[in-house]
Design a protein around this nucleic acid. Structure first.
Lengths: 231, 231
DNA sequence: GCCTGTGAAGCTATTCACAGCT
DNA sequence: AGCTGTGAATAGCTTCACAGGC
């Protein structure tokens, strides 16, 4: 909301250079936590507090907020509302953004349900499945189409993000369909590495790997023990 | 850091020091890809090849394999079987390891289904839910118990890893139950940061954050574009 | 030639620590 | 006194580049 750049304003119109993947991840987390603070009627928050609930260091929080081009006050810390807005300025697309999900199985339905309630700015506007039994149903407000209509629907809605929740064997093909239809980012839950044009951003959520990692560190016969998680 | 390696084989019983979270993640990925190579009847693989299908550099692959204490041959590359075994030596627990999942909703069922087929060494042996309607069913071979029996069942099976797929509000409480029952690692899908004793390893799979990150990079109005994913 | 194994260099991310402010 | 903002230091991870081997 407020644009007030720091003092000696060199016409730095927008915020700095692009944030790193890790920073973006933490900003997303901070925002969620800040909404929680609003519910708790907090107006201001210190880097310390946010750091504690986010599970990172205070210096990290300050750096991340610096990356936003946002400033707090040494006296009151950060204003919660303003900080949420500043994060939105970076994370949210100007005119909203939408996603489509392919593979309306258990996982796909869980994800649709997940995003149905919240996310005004980034909604899942369509689901696709090759199983005729799943088509034309509406799940949590999200309409399911046959895969054959993917291209048309994605184009019509201007979908920019694709979520892949199909079995491994179909993932590559689905990714190609999505990219061909104009999607610029993929969130892939299938345990395969997708091969797509390099200007498409792909993030893999690899549950097998995560579980094996937890198992490894849970044994703890190795020394290190780190709550790491965040990319 | 390393103990003397050179040719003169000192009976280095076990492999080197503990691997980092990122390395462990890649090893898990490599193993999966190697199983694929076996299906394709490949006996050997070069760091180059593995790198290509894993989406990393060859140097990275060699480093990771070095971390295993495993060696290849400059002529044949790595023997696929041996490499799989070497990875198993690091990733797999000596006497097997098992996990329990709490929250048998869509997401929980998807994960159970996911691991039901494969994973001989690391299985989900029990599910828990507070909904009486979900209890006592068997999903993909995994029995579902009421949460009240969590402590008993976890202890009886010697479960070391807990998977949290309950709604946000219940996650902290469930984590505490699991830890109290002896679990040493948690894979958390709820969008909350869990507070647990520091010797418990927690990995968060934060789908909201992942989606927001994909959306951010999909816009690409920022310069960088990186297929990053892996922790 | 083309591989592996690896010291050294290069990057990136995080933390330290302190100036500056109120 | 206690906060933010940030240069400098550190730590961690990845890549380079080349020795050594067949």
């Amino acid at each position: 909301m407020d644009v007030a750049q720091p003092i000696a304003g060199r016409a730095e119109s927008s915020e700095a250079t692009s944030a790193s993947a890790r920073t973006v991840g933490r900003l997303s987390l901070y925002r969620r936590l800040l909404y929680g603070l609003i519910e708790a009627k907090a107006e201001n928050v210190y880097s310390h507090d946010l750091a504690r609930i986010a599970g990172v260091t205070a210096a990290q929080v300050r750096r991340d907020i610096m990356a936003l081009g946002h400033s707090g006050s040494p006296v009151y810390g950060y204003n919660v509302r303003d900080l949420i807005d500043a994060i939105g300025l970076v994370l949210d697309a100007e005119g909203g953004q939408c996603a489509a999900l392919v593979g309306v199985g258990n996982l796909g339905r869980a994800i649709i349900a997940y995003f149905a309630s919240r996310r005004p700015r980034l909604g899942i506007v369509a689901g696709f499945d090759s199983d005729p039994g799943k088509v034309d149903r509406v799940i949590h407000g999200c309409h399911c189409y046959p895969v054959a209509e993917l291209g048309r629907v994605v184009r019509e809605h201007g979908v920019g993000v694709g979520i892949v929740t199909v079995p491994a064997e179909q993932a590559q093909q689905v990714a190609e369909l999505l990219v061909a239809a104009g999607v610029r980012g993929l969130l892939n839950f299938a345990p395969v590495r997708l091969t797509v044009s390099p200007e498409v951003y792909v993030e893999d959520v690899d549950i097998t790997t995560s579980l094996e990692r937890v198992a490894y560190f849970a044994r703890g016969d190795a020394a290190t023990r780190r709550r790491d998680s965040r990319l």
